[in-house]
Design a protein around this nucleic acid. Structure first.
Lengths: 161, 161
DNA sequence: TATTTAGGTCAGCCATATTGACTTAATTAT
DNA sequence: ATAATTAAGTCAATATGGCTGACCTAAATA
């Protein structure tokens, strides 16, 4: 039986074109993350460390729980990576007002690394987006946003309050 | 010293907005890949199996070497995953014209799984893109394409010849 | 005939994630 | 005041998906 969805789709939304989008997403994301990897490797860190540093830098005084919600990993997974970052002086831990919680921040060393890693990705995106119209850029951001699951959209918003 | 790049950037390309793009990319890609994971789990497969099935489905009679170039992993890594897929009847191997090479194709069972997995992602993308203009969609695809490293652009093109 | 290429295999290692069980200390609810 | 909940930590075992290095075979090419 013919797929009605295909019959009513314009050419730029047909199966073949959508599959190209799948592939573009795969290839572009892989290359997008490959830049920082080289720097991380020298420090014997991985992408997991990068994510922690990024989100601690983004939201100063973030708690363990908040970080876990953003990263969507278990506390056991976070623990290994976070302990390394604390031991090596990239992140500093203090107690929150609620003394059950911990408050995480980047040290100066951590801030420098965060900037170094992010700059690679920021520059890459800037270089690409420079050649597109404001309309295209806003469209790009909206499409990415709409691809986020409903619950995670809130998490993204809260990060950018 | 002030960053000249920032001074000449329009507001939609300032540091803060670019960092939002980083995060959008992270969140959207994570949710984009999460759909198939549930199905794969039942079969005791992972994302690596999905990728192999996807690209074998995409390019029938692909060789091991070609697959390695697309996936950018070592043959030792591919071997474990591929052998499982062959043993369990998802992929069939035959000899190429050049008898050193092997030619990989999906079996009927493999084709069914490929469709099941891809359909989840295709539907998601279709649903999102349906609410955007052709101009926005083409912009989206071009931006993703431009984020791919130069060498890998060729690989993407060859897949879609 | 020598070299290169495609593919395979064994072994060991590392990073990142998981589940489950259990603990401590602090805050909230009853 | 006590009970329940919450935030965080820890120990142990397991899975997945990568990696390097060393070697091997068979076929194609120089």
């Amino acid at each position: 039986m013919a797929d009605l969805n295909n019959l009513i789709s314009p050419f730029f939304l047909n199966e073949k074109e959508i599959r190209k989008v799948l592939e573009l997403f795969f290839f572009s994301y892989r290359d997008f993350t490959s830049g920082p990897d080289k720097i991380l490797e020298k420090l014997k860190f991985g992408r997991a460390h990068h994510r922690v540093i990024y989100f601690v830098g983004k939201k100063n005084n973030i708690t363990i729980k908040e970080l876990l919600i953003v990263l969507k990993i278990t506390k056991q997974s976070l623990s290994r990576v976070l302990n390394q970052l604390v031991e090596e002086g990239y992140i500093i831990v203090s107690s929150g007002l609620d003394k059950r919680t911990k408050s995480l921040s980047l040290t100066e060393k951590g801030g420098k690394l965060e900037l170094e890693l992010s700059t690679i990705q920021v520059k890459k995106i800037k270089k690409v987006l420079n050649n597109f119209s404001e309309e295209n850029i806003n469209g790009f951001k909206k499409i990415l946003y709409e691809m986020i699951d409903i619950n995670n959209k809130k998490i993204f918003e809260q990060l950018n309050d």
